[in-house]
């Protein structure tokens, strides 16, 4: 059974320009010990989905209009704020994009790590400190005793992200949501953080939802991938399915736009056009305007079709792919 199962989730925001459809009828599930990558460009609904799982959407203006988010057997959307608080940082933890601003600048890193221990496990201060120190060592922070009482500004970007990870892991979550945790870091540090997350995940058997727009990162850590476009799923499958047998024109476009070190390129390949206006979606495929394959078929709403077991695509033209490429 899946650890987390999202069914038919739709999220809207009311804005001055009208109702913004952030996520439409999203289905996904994550198994214990697996990593699901959610890929897509800015504004496709990745982070909103993560916030919805955490119960951290600002309501209003956000509104969950349909669906369920089930962790184990509990529907998170039906929980009270108090019940949700007991889960947050405990069963589900989250790490954020920018470790520079996501840590509180006026509290010591040690305090920030032990705070969730303090809240969720009823343990003494001394025990919490010992646990926090052990966590700091586990995530690879050298001289943990000394650094325990230091402030975030005394840490480098990579070390800060390690502090964030230690914080998230402190209560041994079943599910870790990582919202672009490497985007703000140097490439060499990125690799270190990804490796750390990989090792930690293996040793603790937790599930991970990894949100990113960086396909290079995805290839390294994903078990399964969901490609989101304009709040809907374009394609989903295993890492192999997506990287070797991509079927959706949008996925193909994303893969094309990754620069290759072996190829000499004058310009980077881009997908022409921009995301459609999320307050004014037309019926039919949302990728229509930017798609090279579009035809009258695409004026109908696409549904996900299974190509091979587990590999699904929401496109009428995926069968044409072999002829076109």
């Amino acid at each position: 059974m899946a650890l987390l199962e999202i069914k038919d989730l739709s999220i809207q925001f009311s804005t001055d320009e009208g109702v913004l459809h952030a996520v439409d009828n999203l289905n996904l599930s994550v198994d214990q010990g697996k990593t699901l990558c959610i890929v897509g460009e800015s504004g496709c609904g990745k982070s909103v989905t993560a916030r919805a799982i955490m119960g951290l959407l600002p309501i209003p203006p956000a509104k969950i209009t349909s669906g369920s988010v089930v962790l184990d057997t509990k529907d998170l959307l039906g929980l009270s704020e108090k019940e949700m608080r007991a889960l947050r940082g405990n069963d589900i933890a989250m790490i954020f994009q920018d470790p520079m601003t996501s840590l509180n600048p006026v509290l010591t890193c040690g305090y920030q790590i032990q705070e969730s221990l303090h809240i969720h496990d009823k343990i003494t201060k001394k025990e919490a400190k010992e646990k926090a120190l052990a966590l700091m060592k586990q995530v690879g922070i050298p001289e943990a005793e000394k650094r325990f009482s230091e402030y975030p500004h005394q840490f480098s970007g990579g070390m800060r992200q390690r502090v964030m990870i230690a914080m998230a892991l402190s209560c041994k979550p079943k599910l870790l949501i990582a919202d672009e945790p490497t985007t703000a870091l140097d490439v060499s540090i990125q690799a270190q953080i990804l490796e750390l997350l990989g090792t930690l995940k293996k040793s603790s058997d937790m599930a991970m939802i990894f949100i990113t727009h960086d396909l290079g990162v995805v290839a390294e850590i994903a078990d399964e991938i969901i490609v989101l476009y304009a709040g809907t799923v374009a394609e989903r499958g295993t890492t192999k399915d997506i990287f070797n047998h991509a079927a959706h024109p949008y996925t193909l476009g994303l893969l094309e736009s990754v620069p290759h070190i072996s190829k000499e390129q004058e310009h980077l390949t881009v997908i022409p056009g921009t995301l459609p206006d999320p307050t004014d979606y037309q019926p039919g495929c949302r990728f229509y305007e930017r798609c090279t394959f579009h035809s009258d078929l695409c004026k109908k709403d696409p549904v996900e079709e299974e190509i091979t077991p587990g590999h699904r695509v929401a496109c009428f033209h995926y069968r044409l792919k072999d002829q076109q490429y």
Binding site: A93, S102, M167
Partner: peptide, 9 residues
Amino acid sequence: RTAYAKGLG
């Protein structure tokens, strides 16, 4: 946001 994500009231 981080503080809320930790489950603080």
